[in-house]
Every structure is written in structure tokens, then in C-alpha cells.
């Protein structure tokens, strides 16, 4: 991962946005709110996330980053008594519409969680889980998908000899990369990552960050982190949230060097949070 790439991407985005090519907006929130019961955890957020870039979400803990992230593939449906307001537009549809096929949505929007959550199954079965759900049973085809995904997640060399051993036996960093491979195996367009490195040591973190750098070529990545250095290192764009509100959204470099909002500035200069 290099500064150069980051800069190039910035410029690209700048170009596109200035030349107004809307096709490059991959997902868009319009006045989107999410409630836990009566509590509004995400408040009327509007933001446009461009295709094939890394968008970071930062903010003090409890500000609604995870909630917003999980709203993108409707993971909040799992929690009883949640409801959404506003729109989350993906592929021309509000994903909170009645006739949305949530299963398809989730297979187009992959997710990696804070703690590596591999299944207590073999490495192979973990990666093959998604493809199998989509009805792929051919052994050959599965092996190919598994290998590609593991290669993409830069873990193939470490595990190729023990694909059938239990995934729980791997180190935390390996498990997280396996989770990424597992998410890639369903061939998503968007990859959501909720503090993917917070449970890992620095070395494993560096590997994941490198991996993100490679994956941005093909995927739209949205990453939640409360490590500002990480956001600065890996992302093209950064969104700063505070108490459920999207305070500032812009190019990472600009946001870190020259924030427009005083709250953002306070946060990144470490005055609170």
C-alpha cells in the first residue's frame, strides 16, 4: 500500500464527482435513520459511497458507525424491535423496500466482523459455505472458488496444506483473513468491515491493511474503525460520525489535514473520543 495509490484514487474520485458521473455512486443513503426501539442510533444520514474505493467511518464509540454499516446489508433485521426510516439505495432500489430479496442483498454485500467469527468447521467448508448456499455443489467448482478466495485474501499459502483442518485452530489474524476469504467467496460487490483489526495484533493488522489495499481494485469497501491512523492509511474517503449524525464526509486526506467541521477537528486532534 502506498501513498501514491491513495492519491491517485482521490483524484479519480474528485474527477468523477466533478464531472458528475453518477454511475460511480455505488450505494447511497438518503435521510436514513435507524431506530433501536425508540432510540434513534443513526440520524438522517445522507451519503454517497463511490464504487471501488475504500470508505472509512470514524467516530467515538457508540456513535452509530456499526449500526450504519450493518444497515447496508440489513443485518439489523436480526435485532428485534429495530426499524429504519429514509432510504438506502443500492442498484437503483431502496433495500428497505418490501419486496427486496434480503438473501440476494447479502450475497452482493459481504461483511467482515469485528471479531473473527469462523464457523467450527474445516477451512474449506468455511469458505465454501456461501457458494454452497447459492447451490453450487460441484466439488471441482467449489475447490476453484475456495482457492481463488483464499488467494485473494492472501492466505492461500498458509493454509493450502490443511484445508480440511478445523478453522478454529488458526491464529486470530489468519481467522480474520479467512473470514474475508469467506466473504469474497460469495462474490460480493461491496465488502463491509466492522473494525476488522481491533481484535488483532499489529502484525496481523498490517497484513489485513495490505489486503484491503489490494482488494480496492475490485471491490467497494466500507470499513469502520476507530483507529484514525488506520483510516488515514487505508481509505480514500472518510466519514466522521458523532451521536448518530454524519458530521463530515470527504476525501481522507482533506478530512485529516483540513477538516471543515470543528467537531471533526476536535476529534482527530484527540480532544475528545
Amino acid at each position: 500500500m502506498s501513498e501514491e495509490i491513495t492519491l491517485r484514487k482521490f483524484d479519480q474520485f474528485a474527477e468523477h464527482s466533478s464531472s458528475g458521473e453518477p454511475s460511480e455512486i455505488h450505494i447511497e443513503a438518503k435521510d436514513f435513520s435507524l431506530f433501536y426501539g425508540d432510540f434513534e442510533a443513526v440520524r438522517k444520514v445522507s451519503l454517497k459511497i463511490p464504487r471501488r474505493m475504500v470508505t472509512a467511518m470514524i467516530g467515538p464509540s457508540g456513535c452509530g458507525k456499526s449500526t450504519l454499516l450493518r444497515s447496508i446489508n440489513r443485518m439489523n433485521d436480526l435485532i428485534p424491535s429495530t426499524h429504519a426510516k429514509g432510504e438506502m439505495v443500492f442498484d437503483g432500489h431502496n433495500i428497505y423496500d418490501r419486496n427486496i430479496d434480503v438473501v440476494t442483498l447479502r450475497s452482493r454485500v459481504g461483511m467482515v466482523f469485528q471479531k473473527p467469527n469462523v464457523f467450527p468447521k474445516s477451512i474449506f467448508d468455511n469458505v465454501a459455505y456461501g457458494p454452497r448456499l447459492q447451490g453450487i455443489t460441484n466439488k471441482q467448482q467449489l475447490s476453484e472458488i475456495v482457492e481463488t478466495s483464499l488467494r485473494q485474501a492472501a492466505i492461500w499459502n498458509e493454509v493450502k496444506d490443511r484445508l480440511s483442518s478445523n478453522a478454529l485452530g488458526m491464529s486470530g489474524g489468519q481467522q480474520q483473513r479467512l473470514c474475508i476469504a469467506r466473504a469474497l467467496a460469495i462474490k460480493p460487490e461491496i465488502l463491509l468491515m466492522d473494525e476488522p483489526t481491533s481484535a488483532l495484533d499489529p502484525k496481523a493488522t498490517a497484513k489485513i491493511e495490505d489486503l484491503i489495499g489490494e482488494l480496492r481494485e475490485n471491490y467497494t469497501i466500507i470499513i469502520v474503525t476507530h483507529n484514525m491512523q488506520q483510516a488515514a492509511r487505508v481509505s480514500d474517503l472518510t466519514a466522521f460520525m458523532y451521536e448518530g449524525v454524519l458530521v463530515e464526509f470527504g476525501k481522507t486526506k482533506q478530512l485529516f489535514t483540513n477538516p471543515k467541521n470543528i467537531q471533526t477537528e476536535n476529534y482527530i486532534t484527540g480532544r475528545f473520543g
Binding site: L78, R106, G110, M111, V118, F119
Partner: peptide, 27 residues
């Protein structure tokens, strides 16, 4: 069974019943 298993399965596009059969029950 850790909640995270369930989330992972849902995140990969499994339905409720699939999640129960393939992840929760085995665990």
C-alpha cells in the same frame, strides 16, 4: 452458540432456516 456464528451466516446470505440447519444446530 455464539451470536457471531449467526451473524456470519446471515452476512453470507443464509436464510434463517439455513442458518439454523447449517450453523446453529451443528454447533
Amino acid at each position: 452458540v455464539p451470536r457471531s456464528y449467526k451473524e456470519a451466516a446471515f452476512g453470507l446470505g443464509a436464510g434463517r432456516w439455513r442458518t439454523v440447519l447449517t450453523v446453529i444446530l451443528p454447533a
